[in-house]
Design a protein around this nucleic acid. Structure first.
Lengths: 149, 149
DNA sequence: CGTATTGTTGACTAAAATAGTCATCTATGG
DNA sequence: CCATAGATGACTATTTTAGTCAACAATACG
């Protein structure tokens, strides 16, 4: 449970790299991004495609093409990124068990509120952190998040 | 990410069943527990063994044997249960990437505080919910958790 | 024009984690 | 002593994750 996949970790790192690019700078190519973050190029490609469909990055084709953020870093929340790359957690727990017909607590399950509660708390927090909060050194970001939330 | 495994879901349900047993009642056998919760018997066994080693339930062997809570339901936190059945989330994210040597942000990673923050929030919440909070109908438990946290 | 460069698509494979089973053993009450 | 129930460890099947491959499409530049 609650293990972050490489897809999310890599995706977040790529987005952060793009966020650190100066405004007006050319887009970064997949090759550049993968090299700078030391990640498998084709996997990065897959992830960026996904982020593009989610409207988080935009791309330009052809020579001199590449990727850049679709919106200012101050408008891209970590919650939005995680919702795209990880999907919604806890949400499906009861549904899955229902489908398999192996839950005897369909109508009244006192465990369900636990998942709902922690899910809500988690997203409340993640939706308040934006990419631009992370454009700083680790210690500073740590302090920012502690204050922010 | 953050998908609850059947191990956790089942384990929690078994514990809740045991918590609902009247004090002084005999222990419930694996067969009884599995039947009541409509779960695979041998899987339930595996889970209960794990919970026993973690000191959350105790067992009696032989005829008339079975399982019961090792402590009062008011002293068993959901956090403790999840730590046993799911392990600690987020914790290993960076470690894993370090081992594979594919993270270029070992010494200074501004993403790390995000995982640390949500991990802490999650456990803070889970450690405040106890098994006895869940011995009620869904609506009531929902209200209890909203007040409690 | 045409070709090198870069993104786009969808299917594919390998490895790891999850979900669950099996066989064999030990203890206890009747 | 035997039926009942827990104890142990290895095993298998399924699903998810992680990552690759091949063929295509657009664009800049000479």
């Amino acid at each position: 449970m609650m293990k972050v996949s490489t897809k999310t970790e890599y995706g977040l790192r790529c987005l952060l790299l793009l966020a650190k690019q100066e405004v007006g700078h050319e887009a970064l190519s997949i090759t550049q991004i993968a090299a700078r973050e030391r990640l498998p190029k084709q996997y990065v490609q897959q992830i960026l495609m996904r982020l593009r469909r989610a409207g988080l990055v935009k791309s330009i084709r052809g020579t001199q093409g590449g990727f850049s953020l679709a919106k200012p870093a101050a408008e891209i929340s970590i919650g939005a990124i995680l919702r795209d790359l990880e999907g919604i957690p806890f949400q499906h727990t009861c549904d899955n068990f229902n489908k398999k017909n192996n839950c005897g607590h369909l109508s009244d399950c006192s465990i369900r509120p636990v998942w709902q509660m922690i899910s809500q708390r988690l997203w409340d927090a993640l939706d308040q952190i934006y990419l631009h909060h992370l454009i700083d050194d680790e210690a500073t970001v740590g302090r920012t998040l502690a204050v922010e939330l």
